[in-house]
Amino acid sequence: MSSVSLEDVEKSYGAFTVLKDLNLEIADGEFVVLLGPSGCGKSTTMRMIAGLETISGGTLRMGEREVTNMHPRERNVAMVFQNYALYPHMTVLDNIGYPLKVARVDRATRRRQIEDAAKKVDLLPYLDRYPRDLSGGQRQRVALARALVRDPEVFLLDEPLSNLDAKLRVAMRAEIKHLQRSLGVTMIYVTHDQIEAMTLADRVVLLSEGVIQQVGTPDDIYDDPDNLFVAGFIGSPPMNFVEGVARDGTFTATGVSNLAPPKDGKLTLGFRAEDAVLDQNGRFSGKVFEVEPTGEATYVVLEMGASRCIIRGDKKFRPPLGSELRFELQEGHSLFFETESGRRVRGAP
């Protein structure tokens, strides 16, 4: 196992730059998730680490080795592709054993290592089958076993769960996390699913348009987002935003009164649905637009001027449509952003 470090890494196709100034330190044994909407460059980043894409600029290191221009086979990484990339004409046994066969490991050792890997992912009874005879989850596990079998420096997983159905995804999520913990391996995981990112990661790297937006623990990026993009991307329902103007120490927006901003100018107030508490004397108000019960709670969609906000209420809470609701935010849970640049404005409100 080893650490991975990217220094000023860049990727461009001709004149078109897709990734720039990527700086990231991944510690030995860490589980890092690259998260972002499609086209943000997260898969490209992973493919550069794997060596499937050339690196246009900067340095990539694994442990002490510089691997920037190395061929994939010299980097000793293992990768699990979104569609598993199994070899359809080989049995499960041969699929898992292929990296060993290529490395000229002798037959008996190979067999033992394959069985070890297969045992870790409960595939022992299926070794003689072909990929076409397996279910999606089993194929996924074959791909995992093939990665496990060779003791690589780094594990790379490219959206490995997105082809599975919802229930299986949750189960495999736990399995992958458990596997990573118990083996203590360095794992880099790409996904566009923020729930996966939050549940799996030691640290999340949130990318957008080829630029790292924020790096932090799941709690960090949920509670303390650096900008509007991060705040809006993480969380379900997403963070509420109310645009307004701050002048002479007061923030003015429809449905908001008596709120002290950290600075003057055009600002956007952000708060999460679960941080709102119903309060007759609250400083925030909105008209009930729709009520969405989910079973464990009720989400109320409020109209606050031009923007819509969602607040979370008790599971039995059913306010009449069109009625006025007043609420208050829990201490320290109103965040301010510069409306134009999207940057977070820190400081006590």
Binding site: V77, A85, A103
Partner: peptide, 27 residues
């Protein structure tokens, strides 16, 4: 011939000739 198994083989450590024999040819 799909791209992923070829890339997978490259990562698995196979050289181009090996990939041709083991992966491309069966496809």
């Amino acid at each position: 011939v799909p791209e992923e198994p070829l890339e997978q083989a490259r990562i698995d450590g196979a050289r181009e000739w090996r990939i041709f024999w083991d992966i491309t040819l069966p496809f």
